[in-house]
Design a protein around this nucleic acid. Structure first.
Lengths: 236, 236, 236, 236
DNA sequence: GATGAATGAGTATTCATTCAT
DNA sequence: GATGAATGAATACTCATTCAT
């Protein structure tokens, strides 16, 4: 009745022999999204995956490991895809940034990422190992990619002199938080809010404004920056 | 007979018959911080508050309502305090912005806010009413305050022409996310990370760079920047 | 309906505030007897004790600890009682032995001991600590008591020179095993078997025959035996 | 694909298509020994037998029947062997008894019998049929064999007049219990205990002392015994 | 015959909530 | 008002058994 696979005529068993893990992870993601980690009942996940409760334990030793895998699979898979679209730059750095953040924004707005983000913030801190994994593989990686773009802009003179690591982190935070908010709002008050794409443009404008080189004074740039402590960006 | 020993004069409880609710809320906040909503046991909260389990039900109809109150009380109380420090502007708008964000940042870094933030992201979506409350009383309010400052800056010509509502939201997101990240990191790798205050400066620099008027007076550039604390961005 | 306390009119709760542990242990003993350790369901124990499942956990941390306590309480309590009846010797050592073994036999035939014995043999080996406890407090103690009697007999010349420790063990084994068998048989084929008391006499005769002094006074044989109950061995 | 690797030539299984049942029973015995009936998992038994879980069901309808067969096969097979060594008497009856009990003791000390004994005591009572089988085929048979020896001794005058059935049972209990205890102790405190063989000598001495004819009065023996209830030993 | 993936009934344990004292 | 003993619904996990291959 509630089976997800209406067009399958197989008599229940052996639906997709090697797809099981993916099937389960997908179902788990959905249930975790709706109820959080501790609120999700294994039985619901099983039902949603169209399998029996016990079957989950053939592939995952327990609920927590299943949770870990959900986080891992979902984010990493998407990150790889996103990265591919990014690694071949075209146009000015400003254009590259726009292309990159647009693609990234797209990902951040997927239900998968939204869910993972909530889980990460709400329940991950009980899993220190997972936190470490997440920080290295998602957060740092994302910062690094942005850092590469920013550095290019600084090198080409399109951007002002930046403390690339900190600005990368800040830009990252900007994208993530605003994507989450935009989606949450969209879900809450679908009628009255700034559409997702428009929010993106606002964010993009904001961050470009923050990093672009100041139009005029090429003259003083070098001198004034010298007076500033080394580990801060000194503009120009 | 075997347990409570009625004639022992414990110096702990019986303190402040009218403080009970606050006592409970404070204890609940601490336990929620450590274990999340579903992980928190009423018995732990009671023990931490120095009262019996049943007593909680004299003040709160159930666990969820207690949770709501924790969110409400904690954030609102702090917000009021924070706002007071902000409402009396002094100096240039840029200086006002810095003062405002510094104070706000202070609040965002308190354990109370950190906890509430995690609870809000991780478990609030099961409480639509609370979400609405949170959005109106915390998110919107925070945006509005920033918006007032930004508008002043636009009016005075210190800032470029801005879409105040969207930029307010963006600035807000910047502060919250970076405060949360900074605190999380501080908790995780206390040795190796950019200290909290430094992160604040980076964020502040970034957002001022994004909003400041574009074409600065090339002449005054050097001078005006001199008035600003040395380790901040001075560039036009 | 299945409540054990038919004449209680209390509305379920607060039946016997301090009797709880004993109540639970008694119920557990009965259920363990019927189904063994792993076969016993906590719910059955609770129902038999007239309480709710969760209540058990207010007094015992888990099923295994409950099991331990059942063993401990049941055997030790009975042992103390049995010992009291024994410590005041009267008559010849042979008579003392008979009195002792009779009393001990009585205990060995109680359903409590029968149950404990089965549990001990069948399921105790998973609880090394309990085994140690059982060996020191039941087995060794039982051997020691018999040893005292035997030594007296050796000293008085009624018994032959014996290796007291090993004979104590052997006598102990004789009583236990035959008591268990007698009870088992009685339960199984109540119609056709040697009654319990008769088995006891047979065992008692056997062991006295094994320990009595070898070369009896051929002269008194007939007379002395006359003082002994007719169905007992009267020889020398 | 990820697990069984069909083209690997495992040298373990596929051995002896007709040995399967025995293979399984042996594996089951080992697992039952380690974990008891309810603690034993069919998967473990299968793994130990080098076959797949389902295969067990080709030979045994369910776990309980497998258990029954384990008991049956193990004890009966050994009994037959033991009996053969016994049926050809040599020497005095006292010597025959020693030879018999020694051989029997050997069997009682095998891990197989030890395991079966524990299972029988701990879990057999849920299988009334099996109990009946065990009583007729092991207990009674064992008693009967001893009874034959005892009768020979009585007839030859080496033993006193005995109630053969009851003394058989008693002697049997003596051997079994002491063998079990000796082995258990050996397993528990291997360093400090009377060695198995020495225990046997003690038991043998004890039982011979209990049954041997009293050195002197060969005269009265026959007459006095006539007055005693038929199924009891009347001594002398 | 053999396999082992799949099933789902069965249970120890937890904990929010109640209520007699 | 306070208490905390008692309740019992809820749920992760196990494992005997089945059956498509």
């Amino acid at each position: 009745m509630s089976k997800t696979d209406p067009h399958s005529s197989e008599p229940r068993r052996r639906r997709s022999p090697e797809e099981r893990p993916r099937q389960i992870i997908q179902a788990a993601l959905e249930v975790f999204e709706e109820r959080g980690l501790s609120g999700a009942r294994l039985e619901d996940i099983a039902r949603r995956a169209g399998i029996a409760k016990g079957t989950i334990y053939l592939y995952f030793p327990n609920k927590e490991e299943l949770f870990s895998e959900v986080i891992r699979q979902t984010v990493i898979a998407r990150l790889d895809i996103a990265q591919l679209q990014i690694d071949s730059p075209t146009g000015t750095v400003t254009e590259q940034v726009r292309a990159y953040t647009a693609s990234w924004w797209e990902f951040l707005c997927t239900p998968e990422f939204q869910t993972v983000h909530r889980l990460v913030h709400g329940e991950l801190h009980r899993f220190p190992e997972l936190v470490r994994f997440y920080v290295s593989n998602v957060v740092s990686r994302s910062h690094a990619l942005i850092g590469r773009l920013l550095q290019r802009g600084v090198d080409s003179g399109e951007f002002r002199a930046l403390d690339v690591p900190s600005v990368s982190r800040i830009v990252s935070s900007l994208l993530i938080t605003n994507a989450v908010w935009a989606c949450k709002m969209a879900a809450f008050r679908p009628e009255a809010l700034t559409p997702r794409d428009q929010v993106f443009e606002q964010v993009n404008d904001f961050l470009l404004a923050a990093v672009r080189a100041q139009t005029p004074q090429p003259v003083d740039a070098g001198t004034s920056s010298a007076a500033v402590p080394p580990h801060h960006f000194t503009s120009l």
